[in-house]
Design a protein around this nucleic acid. Structure first.
Lengths: 195, 195
DNA sequence: TTTTATTGATTGATCAGTCAATCAAAAATA
DNA sequence: TATTTTTGATTGACTGATCAATCAATAAAA
């Protein structure tokens, strides 16, 4: 059985398994056994590669935020104009896989975890900053800097809010509607500035 | 020591203690011992009155949502016009005690818990519906019903989003700024409808 | 032989929940 | 009023379950 070079394979499998289990469970109070089982290995192996449960969870946040970041970068490259880049940022936030109930449940759990884990908090802060800075940078080409900051703050809040509200699954709003609502926010406020 | 009629006193003390411990801890993974200690009683007594940890936590959500509701009702009564009622709803959401880091941490934990506890989820759904319906009712007097629904959705999302973003404590935005941002959202969108 | 991958078995800690016992106020009774 | 009974309040000690983490052992590749 034992083949050399399994480490990266196992690490990826465990990180993916963690995300899935956390999403299903809707909480970070998952056991190493559950995660390991989902990844098809023994709990001991998970400890072998990650040292502790906390490290595995931190790595899970890190990897998934990295993937999200890659999506944003790709989407930004594909959008030619600032206004289209703004829409692209919004669209990525509401991508199908991001909007899946288990994904939202997992992110929610990470937000809660950030209250205790400084490292988790750091990752989420970086994500929040990046979202904001992407919005501000493109807004600045369309309106004064001061307004750009304010509108970005509102848009970021709306994205996070729409996202969180999905987690309750009451009056669930579609991906399209969420995108439209946020996009409309930008359009209306930019128009208001022109008088 | 033992006096009769302690039950309501103890229940309140335990519910308040739970909220405080959860807020400090930033998570629902708190022990009955911690809560009981904070309330100044033995863990056994907490079990005596609430039966289980889950019941105590559910009661904690219920009580605090009830208090929030009372604040809203009072604020709505005091506001004379629909437009002022809208601002009142927004203002209550960002009240000083609501905006305290521990309070936000606690609500975040409850949102996460709602993924698993059907009863917790029910309470939060009711809160979300009530917020939405308060907004819609007053917006309808100022614009067509269809627009009212849309604007309410956006405002509710923005409120939740601004709230959640405070939990990361990065680029923290003041109470006043949060209120202003949300209020501005309403004003701008209502104006846009008038052409 | 040395190194890497892997696991079963075990340990130690933590915790929710239980229970029997205690204490004092209130109610009933003499 | 004095005495007994009942009841609510309260806790310390205990139990059983869960789980993260460890470790020694095994198996295969290098």
């Amino acid at each position: 059985m034992p083949k050399v070079g399994m480490e990266p394979v196992r690490r990826k499998a465990l990180v993916d398994a963690a995300m899935r289990v956390i999403g299903d469970h809707g909480s970070l109070t998952v056991t190493m056994s559950e995660i390991a089982k989902q990844a098809g290995v023994s709990p001991a192996l998970a400890h072998h590669y990650f040292g502790s449960k906390e490290q595995l969870l931190i790595e899970t946040v890190r990897v998934h935020l990295q993937r999200l970041r890659d999506s944003v970068v790709t989407a930004l490259r594909a959008a030619p104009t600032p206004r289209e880049k703004l829409s692209a940022v919004i669209r990525v936030s509401f991508q199908a896989d991001q909007f899946a109930p288990e994904t939202i449940a997992a992110w929610l759990a990470f937000y809660a975890e950030a209250q205790r884990s400084e490292e988790t908090r750091r990752f989420l802060v970086i994500y929040a900053r990046r979202l904001r800075s992407n919005l501000v940078a493109n807004l600045k080409t369309l309106c004064p800097a001061e307004d750009a900051e304010r509108i970005a703050e509102g848009a970021a809040a709306m994205i996070d809010g729409l996202y969180i509200r999905q987690s309750l699954r009451s009056a669930p709003i579609s991906i399209e509607a969420s995108i439209a609502l946020t996009d409309d926010y930008l359009t209306t406020h930019l128009n208001a500035l022109r008088g």
